[in-house]
């Protein structure tokens, strides 16, 4: 190939990727780094009006945050969402994937679309619908409980129930995507292997336990990481369903960042919350990887 051709290809490479790289640098990398810088200042409504009011305050925002009970409430609530939601998403999604992948089941594409529909639905609209489904007196959820002889629950009005209620909604909304990840993994399990296990006398449960589950462990790890990251980013759900209430029982870390930054215009404090959130997400996302390594070591 001629030297001019190589040069043309090289130039095209940069020209083709430059617009996207420029946009990523300007509107993603720069703001992310700036978050760190912003968290070390007292940027507030006065600095917004006149930048000369801006002062460098070191780690003061972080110190103030650690002393703020609302921050610990938000962090605790978020961890509660993670602890409750992630296992539920894994279990429900895996169940759905096994059903949809089972050749004995008729009309599988229909069920697959049905299970996936909530994931596509607009989050705000679905949250509005669930707010009324969970209504204490007129909601379908309490009506269903009533037909089973159970007393009504004040889902979104009782601080003890608000997080489980919103988690229920989040699991409904997001399990379809996790189901697809499991489905992709299930489809890599060779049919011959399952058949061989069956011929050897393994029942449905034994085949699931010893042939299918080991093959999809990596997928389960991926689903866990993705759900953890998603659970740390809950915002619209409490914003629409509870406005962070009752008694701040559904304020999440991201909700706190939004309130500090855009409600009270404490952008310095808000940026500190964002940095803490990022550290939490990275730390939490490492948990499934560590757990899987442990599991692998034990099996060997």
């Amino acid at each position: 190939m001629s030297g001019a051709g190589v040069r043309a290809e090289r130039r095209a490479g940069w020209l083709f990727s430059a617009p996207a790289l420029l946009a990523i640098a300007l509107f993603f990398v720069l703001p992310t780094i700036a978050s760190l810088a912003l968290s070390l200042t007292d940027f507030d409504i006065y600095a917004l009006a006149d930048i000369r009011n801006l002062r460098f305050v070191g780690l003061d925002n972080y110190a103030a945050l650690l002393a703020d009970p609302l921050f610990w409430t938000a962090l605790g609530n978020t961890l509660w969402f993670v602890a409750l939601g992630v296992p539920l998403v894994v279990i429900v999604a895996l169940g759905a994937a096994i059903l949809v992948n089972e050749r004995m089941v008729a009309w599988r594409p229909v069920w697959r679309v049905a299970f996936f529909a909530p994931y596509v639905a607009t989050l705000v609209a679905a949250a509005v619908v669930w707010k009324y489904l969970l209504h204490t007196r007129y909601g379908l959820v309490n009506y269903a409980l009533g037909t089973l002889g159970l007393p009504p629950v004040d889902w979104l009005g009782d601080p003890r129930w608000a997080i489980p209620a919103i988690t229920l909604f989040v699991v409904w909304k997001s399990f379809g995507y996790a189901m697809l990840i499991f489905l992709a993994a299930l489809q890599t399990v060779p049919r011959e292997l399952i058949e061989a296990a069956r011929i050897d006398g393994a029942g449905w449960w034994a085949r699931l336990r010893h042939v299918i589950l080991p093959a999809i462990t990596p997928a389960a790890g991926l689903v866990a990481v993705l759900s953890i990251v998603a659970m740390f980013q809950l915002f619209a759900e409490p914003y629409v369903m509870t406005e962070g209430g009752p008694a701040q029982s559904t304020v999440t870390v991201l909700y706190l960042m939004f309130e500090e930054g855009f409600q009270w215009w404490n952008l310095g404090t808000g940026a500190a919350v964002a940095v803490v959130l990022f550290v939490c997400i990275v730390a939490a996302a490492l948990v499934p990887a560590a757990a899987m390594r442990l599991l692998r070591v034990r099996r060997v």
Binding site: E9, R10, G13, S17, T32, F235, A271
Partner: peptide, 29 residues
């Protein structure tokens, strides 16, 4: 397309995938 810096750029982009967009929302605003 073969151009210098391509492999490094792709690796940096892969690492950036891990950062949620909300982290930079206040400065972006």
């Amino acid at each position: 397309l073969r151009f210098s810096g391509r492999t490094a750029t792709v690796q940096i982009l892969l690492a950036l995938l891990l950062i949620p967009g909300q982290i930079g929302m206040l400065p972006l605003f």
